[in-house]
Lab assay of single mutants.
Amino acid sequence: VTTYKLVINGKTLKGETTTKAVDAETAEKAFKQYANDNGVDGVWTYDDATKTFTVTEMV
């Protein structure tokens, strides 16, 4: 189990959260659900070296 981080660069919501998951795919599903629940829709990137997902909403 690995800890993954999500950085949110939203128009109205900004911040970070973490989740523990067995792999990046599982973490991504959890983060996308979290973003969807919070009304964040944007471009996703993932950095495997730092285990960090970033979602950026276009203005």
Results as ranks from 00 to 15, higher is better:
Thr12Val: 15
Thr12Asn: 13
Asn9Ser: 13
Thr50Ala: 14
Ile8Phe: 14
Glu57Ser: 03
Glu25His: 14
Met58Leu: 13
Thr52Asn: 02
Trp44Lys: 00
Trp44Tyr: 03
Asp23Pro: 01
Thr26Ile: 06
Gly10Glu: 03
Thr52Pro: 00
Thr18Trp: 14
Ala35Gly: 04
Asp48Leu: 07
Ala27Tyr: 00
Val59Asp: 12
Ala30Ser: 15
Val43Ile: 09
Gly15Cys: 07
Asp47Pro: 00
Val7Thr: 08
Lys32Thr: 06
Asp37Gln: 08
Ala21Lys: 03
Lys14Tyr: 07
Ala27Leu: 01
Gly10Gln: 07
Lys5Gln: 05
Asp47Gly: 02
Lys32Ile: 11
Ala30Pro: 02
Thr2Lys: 11
Asp48Gln: 09
Thr50Arg: 07
Val59Tyr: 11
Thr3Tyr: 09
Lys14Trp: 12
Thr45Arg: 06
Gln33Leu: 12
Trp44Gly: 00
Gly15Arg: 15
Tyr46Phe: 06
Lys5Asn: 07
Lys20Phe: 11
Thr52Leu: 06
Asp23Thr: 08
Gly10Asp: 04
Thr52Ile: 14
Asn9Cys: 05
Gly39Glu: 12
Gln33Arg: 09
Gly39Asp: 14
Asp41Gly: 09
Glu57Leu: 03
Asp48Met: 11
Asp47Thr: 06
Glu25Arg: 11
Thr26Glu: 09
Met58Gln: 11
Val1Phe: 09
Lys5Gly: 04
Thr56His: 13
Glu16Trp: 06
Asp37Trp: 06
Gly42Phe: 02
Tyr34Leu: 09
Lys14Arg: 12
Lys5Trp: 06
Val43Lys: 09
Asp41Thr: 11
Val7Phe: 10
Asp48His: 12
Trp44Asn: 00
Ala35Tyr: 03
Ala35Lys: 01
Tyr34Trp: 06
Lys32Phe: 08
Thr17Val: 14
Val40Leu: 09
Tyr34Glu: 03
Thr12Tyr: 14
Glu28Arg: 11
Val7Lys: 10
Phe53Gly: 00
Asp23Glu: 05
Lys14Ala: 11
Gly39Cys: 05
Val22Tyr: 04
Tyr4Leu: 00
Thr3Arg: 05
Asp47Gln: 05
Lys51Ser: 05
Ala24Ile: 13
Thr56Glu: 08
Tyr46Gln: 01
Asn36His: 13
Ala35Trp: 03
Lys29Asn: 11
Asn36Gly: 09
Asp41Met: 07
Val40Tyr: 05
Thr26Leu: 07
Glu57Thr: 03
Thr2Ile: 10
Thr26Cys: 05
Thr19His: 10
Asp37Cys: 04
Gly42His: 02
Val43Glu: 13
Tyr4Glu: 00
Val22Met: 10
Asp47Cys: 05
Glu16Phe: 05
Ala49Ile: 14
Lys51Asn: 10
Asp41Ser: 08
Tyr4Asp: 00
Tyr34Ser: 02
Met58Pro: 12
Phe31Trp: 02
Glu16Met: 03
Val55Tyr: 02
Ile8Met: 12
Asn36Glu: 15
Tyr46Asn: 01
Ala49Cys: 05
Lys11Phe: 15
Tyr4Lys: 00
Thr2Glu: 15
Glu28Tyr: 14
Gly39Arg: 10
Val40Lys: 02
Thr19Gly: 04
Ile8Ser: 03
Ala24Leu: 11
Val1Asp: 14
Thr50Lys: 13
Val55Gly: 00
Tyr4Ala: 00
Trp44Phe: 05
Val55Asp: 00
Tyr34Lys: 03
Tyr46Cys: 01
Ala24Cys: 04
Ala21Asn: 03
Phe31Glu: 00
Ala35Pro: 01
Thr52Arg: 04
Lys11Val: 11
Thr50Glu: 08
Phe53Met: 02
Thr19Asp: 03
Ala27Gly: 02
Asn9Gly: 03
Asp47Ser: 07
Glu28Ser: 14
Gly15Pro: 15
Ala24Val: 13
Thr3Asn: 11
Val59Phe: 06
Ala35Leu: 07
Phe31Ala: 02
Thr54Tyr: 05
Thr3Val: 14
Tyr46Asp: 00
Tyr4Cys: 01
Ala35Ile: 13
Asn38Ala: 07
Lys11Tyr: 15
Ala30Cys: 06
Met58His: 11
Tyr46Ser: 01
Lys32Met: 13
Gly15Lys: 14
Thr19Glu: 10
Ile8Pro: 01
Asp41Glu: 05
Thr45Asp: 11
Val1Ile: 08
Thr19Tyr: 14
Gly10Ala: 13
Leu13Ile: 15
Thr12Met: 09
Asp23Cys: 04
Asp23Trp: 04
Lys51Val: 05
Asp41Pro: 04
Ala49Tyr: 09
Ile8Thr: 04
Asp37Met: 08
Asp41Arg: 10
Ala49Pro: 09
Thr50Phe: 06
Thr54Ile: 12
Val7Glu: 05
Thr12Glu: 14
Asn9Tyr: 07
Glu28Phe: 12
Glu28Asp: 07
Val7Arg: 08
Glu16Val: 03
Asn38Leu: 10
Asn36Trp: 08
Glu25Lys: 07
Lys51Tyr: 12
Thr54Val: 13
Leu6Gly: 01
Asn36Cys: 08
Val22Arg: 15
Asn36Lys: 14
Thr52His: 03
Val43Cys: 05
Thr17Leu: 14
Gly10Pro: 03
Trp44Glu: 00
Ala24Trp: 12
Lys51His: 10
Ala27Val: 03
Thr50His: 11
Glu28His: 15
Asn36Val: 10
Val59Cys: 05
Ile8Gly: 02
Lys11Thr: 14
Asp48Tyr: 13
Ala24Asp: 09
Lys11His: 14
Asn38Ile: 06
Asn9Phe: 11
Thr52Gly: 02
Ile8Arg: 01
Thr12Pro: 07
Tyr4His: 02
Thr3Gly: 04
Asn38Gly: 06
Tyr46Ala: 01
Thr56Asn: 13
Val22Glu: 06
Ala35Met: 07
Ala27Ile: 01
Asp41Lys: 07
Val59Ile: 13
Asn36Ala: 11
Gly10Val: 15
Glu28Cys: 04
Val40Cys: 04
Ala27Lys: 00
Thr45Asn: 10
Ile8Asp: 01
Lys11Asp: 12
Phe31Asp: 00
Lys29Val: 09
Lys14Thr: 11
Lys14Phe: 10
Asp47Lys: 04
Lys14Asp: 07
Gly39Leu: 13
Thr18Gln: 07
Ala35Ser: 08
Asp37Pro: 02
Gly42Pro: 01
Thr3Trp: 07
Ala35Gln: 02
Tyr46Trp: 04
Glu57Asn: 03
Leu13Asn: 13
Phe31Cys: 02
Thr56Met: 05
Ile8Ala: 03
Lys5Arg: 07
Ala21Trp: 03
Ile8Asn: 01
Asp37Phe: 13
Leu13Met: 13
Val40Met: 06
